[in-house]
């Protein structure tokens, strides 16, 4: 089977697509605050608001890679701060395993990250997405798990 060459033939203008699942009660507010403070962060991050990081089903992550994401970030409240008391403790276990399991299946662990970012941590949000974005730029486009539809049509397909 052919190895999906990730870094060869990459368009110099290529921008990664990064999906960030962000908890409504913390990270989403943090991202909002980053905006209010006119902080600059990479525009290749798409934020999806979820009620709790515990809402993020591991299948969302798989589906994101399948549909063409180059990286996925799950963000929630600091342990102990969950709006629903314990949601993020489950998230933590779930994605500790998921990250390793994806790595076992050949996905670079930098492509799938989880972070705790509170509503006050606008700077942390900016720094995190900037770092993730830079990491993924260095890694190049992701073809692993992608549907053939996207592979066949290349970059023109949004």
């Amino acid at each position: 089977m052919s190895v999906d060459v990730e870094k060869k033939n990459v368009d110099p203008n290529w921008e990664p697509k990064i999906l960030s699942f962000s908890c409504n009660w913390c990270t989403y507010a943090g991202a909002d605050l980053a905006g209010l403070n006119r902080m600059k962060y990479p525009e290749n991050v798409r934020v999806i608001r979820v009620p709790c990081s515990g809402r993020v089903n591991p299948q969302f992550v798989l589906r994101a890679f399948q549909k063409g994401s180059d990286g996925v970030l799950v963000c929630g409240c600091h342990p102990g701060d969950c709006h629903y008391v314990t949601g993020n403790y489950f998230t933590r276990r779930r994605f500790l395993l998921m990250q390793r399991f994806l790595e076992y299946n050949g996905i670079d662990p930098r492509r799938f990250q989880a972070r705790w970012i509170s509503g006050a941590e606008a700077g942390k949000f900016r720094d995190t997405v900037t770092k993730v974005s830079n990491d993924i730029k260095a890694l190049g486009p992701n073809k692993k798990f992608q549907e053939s539809w996207y592979k066949e049509r290349g970059e023109s397909n949004e």
């Binding site: 798989l62 395993l97 998921m98 053939s148």
Partner: peptide, 25 residues
């Protein structure tokens, strides 16, 4: 829309990984 019915690599990967993860613990 969790899982397409077509048999191809991407859908089979989703099934294989999800099955293993669901029963994982």
């Amino acid at each position: 829309g969790w899982q397409g019915k077509q048999n191809n690599r991407a859908e089979n990967q989703i099934f294989g990984i999800t099955r293993a993860y669901h029963v994982g613990d």
